[in-house]
């Protein structure tokens, strides 16, 4: 199955004197985290299916610096940013798509001041344009009538006001979209942002991801849809903590669309 994935690199495009339509920024989680790698592959399958000429940086990609910046290490962040911008600008990249809202936010909002100006899209926005342009079609079939709730990633929603693209994709699956008590601009964090992903939480009476998972379980979904590899991990852990893994799945929107097509 994996042989069928076409994942060209920017270097390969360059060697042929060509420019891809879009650069797929995979991100650290998408490259290394076992769960997130599945999301990466699902998205690539969709890109392949739609015939999108995309490329990745591969080994030339490096952390955007988001967790370092949010931990307070501006120095390390800017080193990462400037290095990445050098690579991106050398390849004359114009348009970037990523499945990680943290990479999305950082490249879109924090790179321009440092010399990196690109059109940046979250993968749910990109998939939506593919559907709108008829390059990709989905049939509801498999997910028809399923109860799906969407967890707004802070860095996609509040941070960048993207609330509708992921929801429109879920509705395209003819699924029943149910909203949690806190959604859209009031969405409750999964607990991973601001570099929390990489440390234990401070003393409290509950884990944030459990609190958020409880809100999700309250609306009795069959699927919790996510749009961020970190949220995905947090919600998956939350579902496990609540011993609900046999009833509820945590799935990225790209995976939903890919599954609907049996990709």
């Amino acid at each position: 199955m994996s042989e069928s994935l076409k994942v060209p690199t920017m270097a390969e495009f360059m060697a042929q004197g060509k420019q891809p339509e879009v650069l797929f920024w995979v991100g650290c989680a998408g490259s290394f985290d076992d769960r997130a790698k599945k999301i990466t592959k699902a998205f690539v399958k969709l890109l392949n299916k739609a015939g999108v000429e995309f490329a990745v940086l591969g080994t030339e990609e490096s952390c955007t610096g988001d967790p370092a910046k949010r931990a307070g290490n501006e120095f390390l962040f800017q080193m990462q940013a400037v290095t990445n911008i050098e690579v991106l600008n050398a390849y004359e990249v114009k348009k970037i798509v990523t499945a990680c809202p943290h990479c999305f936010n950082t490249i879109k909002n924090e790179y321009p001041e440092l010399g990196g100006n690109y059109e940046v899209m979250h993968h749910t926005q990109f998939l939506k344009t593919l559907l709108d342009d008829g390059r990709l079609t989905v049939e509801g079939g498999k997910f028809k009538g399923k109860r799906i709730t969407f967890h707004d990633p802070c860095y996609l929603g509040r941070a960048n006001n993207v609330y509708e693209a992921p929801r429109e994709l879920i509705l395209k699956l003819e699924a029943e979209l149910v909203e949690m008590k806190n959604c859209r601009r009031n969405g409750l964090c999964c607990g991973a942002g601001g570099a929390q992903m990489f440390k234990d939480a401070e003393k409290g009476d509950k884990e944030v991801n459990v609190a958020r998972t409880e809100q999700a379980l309250d609306v009795k979904p069959e699927i919790i849809a996510a749009g961020c590899p970190f949220c995905n991990t947090m919600m998956t852990d939350g579902v496990k903590a609540k011993e609900k893994e046999s009833d509820v799945e945590v799935v990225d929107i790209a995976e939903l669309i890919a599954n609907a097509q049996d990709l």
């Binding site: 690199t9 650290c28 490259s31 592959k41």
Partner: peptide
């Protein structure tokens, strides 16, 4: 170049 101790040279391994 990643928040975990993986080698940057392995960044595209997921492909295979």
């Amino acid at each position: 170049g990643a928040p975990w101790p993986y080698n940057q040279m392995d960044r595209l391994n997921w492909k295979n």
